[in-house]
Design a protein around this nucleic acid. Structure first.
Lengths: 216, 216
DNA sequence: AAGATTCTTGAACGGTCATTCAGTTAGGCT
DNA sequence: AGCCTAACTGAATGACCGTTCAAGAATCTT
């Protein structure tokens, strides 16, 4: 009976383990390079089980995307509630993008998702949903700042769109390890744009970072 | 003999036809979805010939990337020489990105290249070279503008980096047909950032477009 | 505890596809 | 013309890989 308690894996647990394994493998090999066997090995199960639960490899991909979404949302909320005040929060976002925060940070996975979204409807829906949510969070911070009078923007919607797009664009270079692009450079470049775009005063801009203006 | 003149295809011609076909198929199906047969059909040759010339499918991919580079360079130069003066030229760039100009415009192909660059060295080299060249062109326009006194930027290098990255980021939305993103919106969003980033005066900003400020 | 149901396995199947290859054609050279 | 090499073909090969399946656990029901 003690044995049973240890050996017994709820099927649900198995399912989730497979989905996590799927994400891990896609991260490492990309969608195109992911085999059923890879997932099985990573999850410590058989190939058969993957097909049993998800019907096909594509089905496993699709299901793993919704897990990815859930975790992204959760983490985003957790991250943003960590910091208060529009400027520090925006600054926090600038740092998040650079790769702090595990789920948010893996830009290569994002690239994979974008390309898959060109032709796969599940991926398209997932990426759109993620993007909307992400822009919404950014929008919310911007609105807070506008209300508090520390940001100014003639067209907040456009500003948010641009800042979000800029982050994606910078992310590409980070993901591809473009020489000269580092996480801290990423953060600074984006932050500068935010300052410019939202008319953040130099004083608050510097104070934005929690630790003051110490650089290293 | 007349016959010979018509029928005779220089092998070089065949080679190039295959490379063009490769690009076309990748554009349509992505790297992951491209089969040797597809290329053969598109090029009107046999599968065998592709392998004969390029050794492998990956080889054909690699070779087609250098053709892509060449055409990109050529087209970029052609496009930029069309317009004179820093402001109109920058404006022209804003419009180019939105998809005018065939080779420059196909952002989906760019996405494919980015993802392939994660794991394939040839793709990585090609994309880096393309990117460098592209940023160089942007940089040149910015320098012109600075010299002429119509732009101002405290850190031109960073400005160029940001403007280039922003274009990539916006391109993703264009490539994925994000609802609400259109070529003209793309152009306007980017242009606004350029105006902000380079301190372009409203007067020249409006005159930037060749046709004056007509909107429709 | 017997039976039914769900879960799990891994071997076998079958299709797809890059690559090979034996042979054909065409062009250039003498 | 006759030979040699490069270009070219497409059928055959063989590996890889998603999916199927028959059978075996585990769990649940009563």
């Amino acid at each position: 009976m003690g044995k049973a308690a240890l050996a017994a894996k709820a099927p649900e647990e198995r399912r989730e383990r497979i989905l996590r394994a799927t994400i891990a493998v896609v991260r490492a090999r990309g969608f195109a390079g992911t085999r059923v066997t890879d997932i099985a090995v990573e999850a410590g199960t058989s190939q058969g089980l993957i097909l049993y639960h998800f019907g096909s490899l594509a089905g496993a991909f699709a299901a793993s995307l919704t897990l990815l979404e859930d975790e992204f949302y959760e983490e985003l909320d957790r991250n943003l509630s960590e910091v208060v005040g529009p400027v520090p929060r925006l600054r926090h976002i600038a740092e998040l993008g650079a790769g702090h925060g595990p789920a948010v940070g893996d830009w290569r996975l994002w690239l994979e998702l974008w390309v898959r979204a060109i032709r796969d409807d599940d991926a398209r829906a997932a990426r759109e949903s993620l993007d909307t949510r992400w822009r919404g969070a950014l929008r919310q911070v911007v609105d807070e700042g506008l209300a508090a009078g520390v940001f100014e923007a003639s067209d907040p919607k456009a500003s948010v769109l641009r800042l979000a797009a800029l982050m994606d664009g910078l992310a590409i270079q980070l993901a591809l390890a473009e020489p000269g692009m580092t996480p801290s450079k990423f953060t600074e470049l984006w932050w500068q744009s935010a300052v410019l775009e939202l008319g953040i005063s130099p004083v608050s801009a510097v104070t934005g970072s929690k630790g003051g203006q110490k650089k290293n």
